[in-house]
Design a binder for these strands. Structure first.
Lengths: 342, 342
DNA sequence: CTGAAAGCGCTTACAG
DNA sequence: CTGAAAGCGCTTACAG
């Protein structure tokens, strides 16, 4: 059987109470007692039974982290950021994936609540209003990351997609581009809409109307991007009516690369491309992809930091929104129209 | 406050005991009683306090999964496979990363044991003998995946690196190649040694000695592969003395691509390349990379299946080793020497 | 079929 | 500075 506080107490002829307080480093214990307790605990290989502790204190020191999908490299940055902060504060993570699917998300959150997590990080959530209400009813603090939740007041950490996309537009405009294509992500994602909107705003600042931005709908996957891009090019009958493409994500950009290569259209000589996410593979593409880095590691850290702040200082914490500034990463997929390197 | 069994019992004038048994679906309960208990539980939004349950039963229904690194796409396949099996059996996962570092691994396992996990999956482990002993002392079942642990008898699921690498050699030999280069991974990884060894065996079956396989040491990263490959090419002074390269991993192959491209050496016309892992990016490389797929999703499933089997049928379970058969995925980076497509 | 009682291993007032 | 007692919410024998 596992070693308990009672075993230590028996060995030292102390009460279990004293042992408990010595182990936790509470003040009213003599130095010698504390030392001997720690000593014996170590000898016996004592390890606190966290289930018992949790039952008594209603604190688990476990935080739930709901992600959409383990496969997305973006997610791993978020997790790593969150984990680094949580670990330092002595919290363990309970991780689970929602598979971009409301049933799985609900099951996951229910299971986290049953396990008694102290708080929940949604990275990002499916934006299920009812679910957030459940979490709030339970009195469990939570923080949303990445995806914006319109009209809900809660703790949130996200990127300035709008601003970054405007910057992309400015940059391409500055190179001399005037006709653009935006290839979207899933339409229910606020980020997909905001990237388009931000892009248009950036152009508007240069007096260019949204009429100069054509769009293709895409589900955000590489395969679908390839498919819709091919189809679109067919419809254009041979010549591209744009000189620059803004892709919802690096995955999308990657599908576009494949479709263009097939037609012998050169990047950046014939068309410039900008992706989004600065995924691992974005700089091994040929040519290396110009893209936007959301600094997801930082977002993960901040989201977790926010959650811990709410947990550890329960009173007087209004919900806050933190907006992170993404970074435009210039590489070889963009140039002036006609192929002059920028 | 959270709803407890007592709340349900009070409302129905039943004992807390009866409620507990009704909720768990034990047999000696009348149909009506059970129905009303479930009904009220639902109404009140009852959720079992797992900490209490765990304290009493010494069962947590949580399984620890130790991975090396969230960023590796290979890892996500393993996790997904493991999660799919665990979820179906009603288990939750506690995930943590070791960062390929013994201290972190130890801290992680300690924390899992303190949390009272029912079992542990090491995907893969740092091969820390003392740590495995700790886990065994605690009486917690565990399963190793991916990395072979020489001379230790325990449950293990891994790939036949030896066989797959021999198959790669056979394939390249069949194309007409006779002089090879192997670019390794970290030397302490059994997989790196086995891939080399298997490759040599495959050649031996065709009467070719290991003298025909040059090797370069590499830490398995893309950056290091690029560096060591460049350096090696310098040393060869202009001409490559091999016609085919076997890379420890797709990351390594990717670094080699970059080094070759810089020198204007064409793949597969001037040199063939085979990677390993069938990483997401391996087929977006140009040319698409011939590689080996370990079916990590399946390995994750099998490893978790094995863990559950040990957990649920504690007696009479000898440690077993399951060896999975990888698959050679032929793409465009390999051809006959001189560039004739295979 | 249902209930009263004990106990899992901790922590929290409260006494001394 | 240390100890005796109660209790967190369940589950497990044991009675009836």
């Amino acid at each position: 059987m596992a070693v308990t506080q009672k075993d230590i107490a028996d060995k030292l002829n102390l009460s279990i109470n004293t042992v408990s307080r010595a182990l936790r480093g509470l003040p009213d214990i003599s130095r010698e007692t504390r030392a001997s307790v720690l000593q014996v605990a170590k000898e016996l290989g004592y390890r606190k039974n966290l289930a018992a502790s949790r039952l008594r204190t209603n604190r688990s020191h476990v935080l739930g982290v709901a992600i959409t999908d383990y496969g997305n490299p973006v997610m791993s940055e978020l997790i790593r950021g969150a984990e680094s902060v949580a670990k330092r504060a002595g919290f363990t993570l309970m991780l689970g994936s929602t598979n971009e699917n409301k049933e799985d998300e609900k099951a996951l959150i229910e299971s986290m609540l049953a396990q008694g997590v102290d708080g929940i990080l949604l990275l990002p959530s499916m934006l299920n209003e009812g679910l957030l209400n459940t979490i709030e009813q339970e009195g469990v603090p939570y923080v949303l990351a990445v995806r914006k939740y319109e009209g809900r007041v809660c703790n949130m950490v996200r990127s300035d997609d709008l601003g970054a996309s405007a910057e992309v537009a400015q940059y391409l405009y500055g190179l001399g581009h005037r006709e653009f294509l935006y290839v979207s992500g899933l339409e229910y994602l606020s980020s997909s809409r905001e990237r388009y909107e931000g892009f248009c705003r950036g152009l508007a600042q240069n007096g260019l109307s949204p009429a100069h931005v054509r769009t293709i709908a895409c589900d955000g996957s590489r395969a679908d991007a390839y498919r819709v891009m091919r189809q679109w090019m067919e419809e254009q009958g041979g010549t591209l009516p744009v000189t620059a493409i803004f892709a919802f994500s690096d995955y999308v950009a990657c599908g576009i690369y494949a479709a263009l290569r097939e037609k012998g259209i050169r990047v950046p000589e014939d068309v410039s491309i900008v992706g989004y996410d600065n995924n691992e593979f974005s700089h091994i593409l040929v040519p290396a992809l110009t893209t936007v880095d959301n600094h997801f590691y930082d977002i993960g850290r901040r989201a977790m930091g926010r959650l811990l702040a709410v947990l550890l200082r329960p009173e007087g914490k209004e919900p806050k929104e933190y907006v992170n500034q993404p970074e435009l990463v210039l590489r070889d997929s963009t140039a002036a129209p006609g192929g002059m390197q920028a």
